[in-house]
Simulated assay, not measured.
Amino acid sequence: MAARNYGQYSGMTTALELVGERWALLIVRDLLVGPRRYTDLKAGLPRIPTNILSTRLRELQESGVLARAPLHHSVVYVLTDLGRQLEPIVLALGRWGLQVTNDPAEGDVITADSLTMDLYSAFRTDAASTLAATTYRLHVGDVDLAVSVDGATVHIAPWSSATAELELEVTPSIRSLIAGEVSPESAREQGIVRIAAGNPELLARFAATFSLASVAVPF
């Protein structure tokens, strides 16, 4: 099945042969958010050629990582139990990548699925478990998310009609706040974050909850 064979017998080489091809883990990342139709995956990965997307989906299905399932008179792709075992690996890679990534290049896009998984990657249960439950509304371009934190649990979904204690309009440079490179105050001064509604003091809580660095836990 694998397009690449490393000629070694080990768990690492087997894993790379199955999910190490270009685009494969990004497909898995988006499916970790939820079931997706072919068109959903293509929209979320706009630069992937259609033939490559079809090939990767076939390879991942043959390897048992994902499956096709009926949903509302359509067909969606879903992760199998084997595929969902990749979740901590994808989150760890996302957390590591957020530490070394730069500002987006021209033409780079942020999708709801990519931002959702970046936030899951940066979520700090140690900080969140000490803070009051909070719901944030996050706008980044066309992406509009509800981010609900309750103790050590976080749930992220497209915005519907939930009530948010803090509504933020942010640029892609929100990564610098998450990485601890700028303070919440500096993020506002630099235009990285704009508070559209809610209590401005809760921005410090957001920065403590979604962080790659040690952050002093606020109220």
Rank of each mutant, 00 (worst) to 15 (best):
Arg56Asn: 04
His139Asn: 07
Thr130Ser: 09
Leu119Ala: 06
Val149Ala: 01
Leu93Asp: 13
Ala92Met: 11
Thr39Tyr: 04
Ser54Ile: 08
Thr55His: 09
Ser160Trp: 05
Arg29Cys: 11
Arg68Cys: 04
Ala122Val: 14
Thr125Ile: 10
Thr111Trp: 07
Thr134Tyr: 01
Gly83Ser: 13
Leu31Val: 11
Asp103His: 06
Gly97Ile: 01
Leu131Ile: 13
Asp150Glu: 05
Glu169Gly: 12
Met117Ala: 02
Pro88His: 13
His73Phe: 11
Gly107Glu: 11
Thr55Cys: 00
Thr111Ile: 09
Pro46Ala: 11
Leu93Arg: 10
Glu169Phe: 00
Arg137Lys: 07
Thr39Glu: 12
Val76Ser: 07
Asp81Trp: 05
Trp159Cys: 02
Leu131Gly: 03
Gln85Ile: 07
Gly151Pro: 12
Thr171Ile: 10
Ala152His: 08
Leu26Ala: 09
Ser161Pro: 02
Ala67Asp: 09
Ser63Ala: 14
Arg36Val: 00
Asp103Asn: 10
Ser129Pro: 04
Asp118Asn: 03
Gln85Tyr: 06
Val90Ser: 06
Val143Asp: 08
Leu26His: 05
Thr163Cys: 00
Arg95Gln: 10
Leu86Ser: 12
Ser160Tyr: 05
Ala162Phe: 03
Val147Leu: 05
Ile27Thr: 05
Ala146Pro: 02
Ser129Tyr: 03
Thr80Asn: 09
Arg137Met: 02
Ala122Glu: 12
Leu91Cys: 06
Pro104Ile: 13
Arg29Ala: 12
Ala69Leu: 03
Arg56Lys: 14
Val100Asp: 01
Arg68Glu: 14
Val76Cys: 12
Val140Ser: 02
Arg37Leu: 00
Arg36Glu: 11
Thr111Glu: 07
Val170Asn: 07
Thr50Met: 03
Glu87Pro: 07
Ser129Trp: 06
Glu87Cys: 06
Val109Glu: 13
Ser129Glu: 15
Thr111Asn: 05
Asp150Gln: 00
Gly83Ile: 12
Ile110Arg: 06
Asn102Gln: 13
Ala43Tyr: 09
Ala162Gly: 14
Gln61Tyr: 03
Tyr120Asn: 10
Arg47Lys: 08
Ser114Pro: 11
Asp81Ser: 15
Gly64Trp: 00
Thr153Tyr: 08
Val75Lys: 07
Arg68Gln: 15
Val33Lys: 05
Asp118Phe: 01
Pro46Arg: 10
Asp108Val: 03
Arg137Ser: 03
Leu53Met: 10
Ser161Arg: 12
Val149His: 01
His73Trp: 06
Ser160Asp: 15
Ile27Met: 05
Pro35Tyr: 05
Leu115Phe: 04
Phe123Ala: 04
Leu79Tyr: 00
Ser121Asn: 12
Gly83Gln: 06
Ala122Lys: 14
Leu98Ser: 11
Glu62Tyr: 00
Arg58Val: 09
Ala105Leu: 13
Leu31Ala: 06
Val147Ile: 13
Thr130Cys: 04
Gly83Arg: 13
Leu32Ile: 06
Tyr136His: 05
Ile89Leu: 15
Gly94Ala: 08
His155Asp: 14
Ser114Tyr: 13
Val33Trp: 02
Trp96Thr: 12
Thr80Leu: 09
